[in-house]
Every structure is written in C-alpha cells, then in structure tokens.
C-alpha cells in the first residue's frame, strides 16, 4: 500500500511538470546560503573568539530573520493580489508599522515606552498592526478587478502618507525624549534590534507552521477568485489568513531593521525565475533562501570587502529599485502587445 502510494507519487510528479529543476535550484540555493553564512561567521576573526562569534551570530540571525520574513511575505502577497510587482513594503505595510510605533510612543508617553519591556511593546504594536493592516488591505484587495497601476499608485500614496504622519508625530514628541526613543524605534541594518531576535524567531516559526499547510491551496488561489471557488478553495478566507501572516512578518522585519523596500520584489521574482514553476512548495523556500543570502552576502561585501559605511538598505533599495522599474517596463510592454 505504502509502496504503491510512493510509486504513484513518483509517476505523478513526472508528468505535467518536471520537479528536477526546482529541486536542483533549491539545493543550489541552500548551498549558497550555507556557504555565505559560514563565510560571514568565520572571515577574519580577531580578538576574543567567543565574543566575536556571538556578536556575529546575533547579526547573522537578525539578517536571516529579516530576509526570511521579507521573502516569505512577498511571495504570499504576490499570490493573493494576483500580480508580481506589488510587495507589502511597496503598499506601505512597513511605513504603517513605523507609524504605529511612533504613535504609541506619542500617546502612551516616551517613558512608558522606554520602561516597558521591549518584547511587550513589540507584542502590543503587532496587535495594533494586525487590526489596522487587515482592515485596510482587505478593503483594498477585496475586489479582484483592481487595476494594477491604480494599486501601485494607492500603495505609494499610502506609504508616503504613513511616513509623513510618522515624521509629524515624531515632531510632536519632545525633542529630548525623542532622541532617547530614536534608537529603539528606528532600527536599521547597522543597529539590528537584538532584544527581539528570540521573540522574532518564535513568531516566524509559528507563522511558518501555520501557513505551510496553505501552500498547495495558494497554488489554486493564484488562478484567481472564480477558479479557486470552483475548485473548492475558499478564496476570501485564505486571503484573510495570508494578510494576517503578512502583517506579522512585516512587523517582525520592520521592528528588527526598519523598512526594506524592494528586497521582497527582487527575491520573489528571482525565485520564480530560478524555480521555473508557480508551485509555492518551491517558490516560497527559494525566495526565503534568496532573501537570507542577499542580506548576509550584501552585508558581508559592504562590511568586509568594501569596508564601506554605506547602509545595506541603501544598496538593496538601489538594486531593487532598478529591478522594479525594469519589471514595470516589461509589464507595460506586454500589456500593449
């Protein structure tokens, strides 16, 4: 019985789709990731070994968590919005999270924020983020005939609005208190928020455990609302669940390093290209490996090879931004043809 099932599975995967290419891609990407991680940990170690290793491990962990969260959420976002250009950060998700962070400091008072345990504060912010993000984006993506370009515009406008509001609110806070807050509120790659590493890992693990079973159904969701309904997949429910997952992951990555625009776009699209399939079982892990490798490799090159003080987020935005323009360009040309 078991042998029969295994044989059937072997045959079933042979036709319609060749699993060798995505499997090979995953294997190669895993290799690259491991190599980069080892390099990052061991290159040019100086001074106290245990201190240096611990220091680097924290940094590596932070980069990996951010790469994971950004890549995972971007692929899922592409699927539920039926396009391959918009990502959570392009739709203003991370700007929204920063606005929540700053507003919380304003309304509850700087000292309350500073005294509160970092993890509790994080939990409260995530709860607010979940409520806002799901309501906001559900209304935005509730209809499935939205024009992609309208959504791009709406996303950019919302992103700008959220970040303008963030700077407005931060000006309302007493300047002296604000300086004290700044470190805790606005993390970036050179100042990864290390208090949140453990809790972030836990959130990511939980999210993956819950959403992994959705992946085959997401293949169907990608066909569109009507086809998935016909095939017995409750489109609206999956979209709602995925939006919660995305809001959680964006909160994690923004709390750790601040906004990372364009990274998700870059790694998600690269993963579709290297795996050559629409199947989430392959595209999601590939994107995650690419995301983690891009950040670890990028940070390593900036820091050790170029010895540059340029921020990684600037480099990622520059490369990703070029790629974004190229994608829009191609989309416009195929739409005309």
């Amino acid at each position: 019985m078991l042998a029969e099932a295994a044989a059937v599975r072997g045959i079933a995967q042979r036709d319609g789709f060749d699993a060798r290419r995505p499997r090979f891609a995953l294997l190669a990407l895993t290799g690259v990731f491991v190599a980069l991680a080892v390099l990052f940990m061991t290159y040019d170690l100086k001074g106290s070994l245990s201190y240096a290793l611990e220091f680097r491990a924290r940094k590596l962990g932070g980069l990996a968590l951010v790469g994971f969260a950004v890549a995972y959420s971007s692929v899922l976002f592409h699927t539920v919005t039926h396009n391959r250009i918009l990502t959570p950060s392009l739709m203003g998700f991370d700007a929204l999270y920063q606005l929540i962070q700053t507003s919380a400091a304003f309304f509850f008072g700087t000292f309350a924020v500073l005294q509160l345990d970092e993890r509790i504060r994080f939990g409260i912010e995530i709860a607010i983020m979940l409520a806002f993000a799901t309501v906001l984006y559900r209304t935005l993506f509730g209809r499935d005939d939205r024009d992609l370009y309208v959504l791009v515009l709406v996303g950019i406008v919302m992103g700008l609005m959220f970040s303008s509001l963030t700077s407005l609110v931060s000006r309302l806070i007493d300047p002296n208190e604000f300086i004290a807050l700044q470190d805790r509120l606005f993390a970036d790659f050179s100042r990864i928020n290390q208090d949140l590493l453990v809790v972030s890992s836990a959130i990511i693990l939980a999210v993956v455990a819950v959403s992994w079973r959705l992946l085959p159904r997401l293949d169907v969701v990608a066909l569109g609302r009507e086809h998935s309904t016909n095939l017995g997949v409750d489109h609206q429910r999956i979209v709602n669940e995925v939006l919660v997952v995305i809001a959680l992951l964006v909160s994690v990555s923004t709390a750790l390093v601040g906004p990372v625009t364009f990274l998700g776009l870059l790694v998600a699209n690269l993963s579709y290209q290297v795996t050559g399939t629409f199947r989430h079982r392959y595209t999601v892990p590939a994107a995650v490996l690419l995301g983690m490798s891009a950040l670890i490799g990028g940070q390593f090159i900036l820091q050790e090879v170029l010895a540059s003080s340029t921020r990684l987020s600037v480099v990622v935005s520059f490369v990703g931004g070029l790629y974004f323009i190229a994608l829009l360009w191609r989309e416009a040309r195929t739409a005309r043809a």
């Binding site: 036709d15 789709f17 039926h82 391959r84 990608a222 066909l223 569109g224 086809h227 997949v233 629409f278």
Partner: peptide, 19 residues
C-alpha cells in the same frame, strides 16, 4: 478565463483534480 500565473496546458488541466 485568463490566468495570471504562467503554467502549461497540462498543469492547468491537472488543477481540475484539486478538489
């Protein structure tokens, strides 16, 4: 009927077995 995803004829037909 249009699909945003790039898939082959056979892959699309196979979706009929999803339920």
């Amino acid at each position: 009927n249009t699909v945003a995803v790039r898939l082959t004829v056979r892959e699309l037909v196979e979706f009929g077995r999803f339920p």
